[in-house]
């Protein structure tokens, strides 16, 4: 399995609608609204890079998404 973070910058005003669209996307594990350089951080778990492209594409289709940056996890330590 491939895990990745997708860091999203939004146009002002469309966050609520975009979040509700993203909550419907399969393979999305976690959605966090954050305060800082980015607006939303999405964690995804997918089987292949091909699927990652599809998920990223769906996220980019959500209204108000200005820019996405994908960070693929290579190694992880967790509680």
């Amino acid at each position: 399995m491939i895990n990745a973070y997708i860091l999203i910058t939004m146009e002002p005003g469309d966050t609520e609608k975009a979040i509700s669209d993203m909550r419907k996307i399969e393979n999305v594990e976690k959605i966090s609204i954050v305060a800082g350089e980015y607006d939303i951080i999405v964690r995804v778990k997918i089987k292949s890079l091909d699927k990652l492209l599809k998920v990223t594409n769906k996220i980019q289709m959500a209204k108000g998404v200005k820019k996405t940056t994908t960070q693929v996890i290579e190694k992880e330590l967790t509680l």
């Binding site: 895990n3 990745a4 973070y5 940056t69 994908t70 960070q71 693929v72 996890i73 290579e74 190694k75 992880e76 330590l77 967790t78 509680l79």
Partner: peptide
Amino acid sequence: TRVAAVAG
């Protein structure tokens, strides 16, 4: 709680 080494 989590440390991820990432490519990007």
